[in-house]
């Protein structure tokens, strides 16, 4: 009967690299803790990378989702300001230019990850990536 009953769905969780103390390797090989990362670290790493480029993604809307603990964030992405909506856990951290880690529910992010976090707001410009050779 154990085999007959499917396992319970695992609760959605955040990737381990957002946990305070996680070691992140920059493109030049330098190691930093996730909580110590600065905007320049991402910009310089993208400059070194032969494949990846930094995109600016501006938060245009933040709505609650029908799925508990999730939010729907609408971004204007890149130079063409493509409209992209993503559904994420409310504690999912985005890196805001000049500000650092931010999420829809910073208290929950800090509680779960011990990662210092600010409130993500409409108008914040987040770091996202695109491919350098993307037409």
């Amino acid at each position: 009967s154990l085999l007959a009953t499917p396992p319970p769905p695992s609760a959605p969780s955040l990737p381990p690299y957002f946990t305070k103390g996680s070691i992140i390797q920059l493109a030049d090989g330098e190691l930093k803790r996730v909580e110590d990362l600065k905007t320049e670290d991402f910009i310089q790493s993208a400059e070194i990378s032969s494949e990846l480029k930094i995109d600016s993604s501006t938060v245009e809307r933040i709505d609650s989702s029908h799925t508990p603990h999730f939010a729907i964030i609408q971004f204007a992405v890149g130079e063409h300001r493509s409209q992209v909506s993503v559904e994420v856990l409310v504690e999912y951290p985005f890196f805001v230019f000049g500000q650092g880690w931010s999420s829809c529910c910073p208290d929950r992010t800090t509680q779960l990850l011990e990662l210092p976090c600010a409130k993500l707001s409409v108008g914040d410009v987040c770091i996202s990536l695109t491919l350098k050779n993307l037409k």
């Binding site: 070691i23 992140i24 990362l37 790493s45 992209v84």
Partner: peptide
């Protein structure tokens, strides 16, 4: 006798999303 413990190292680009997709809506 402390056993050496391997510490995971994550690449910088795993931390930020790819949002520019062809399926932009």
């Amino acid at each position: 006798n402390v056993e050496p413990r391997s510490v995971p190292v994550f690449p910088w680009h795993s931390l930020v999303p790819f949002l520019e997709t062809s399926q932009s809506n």
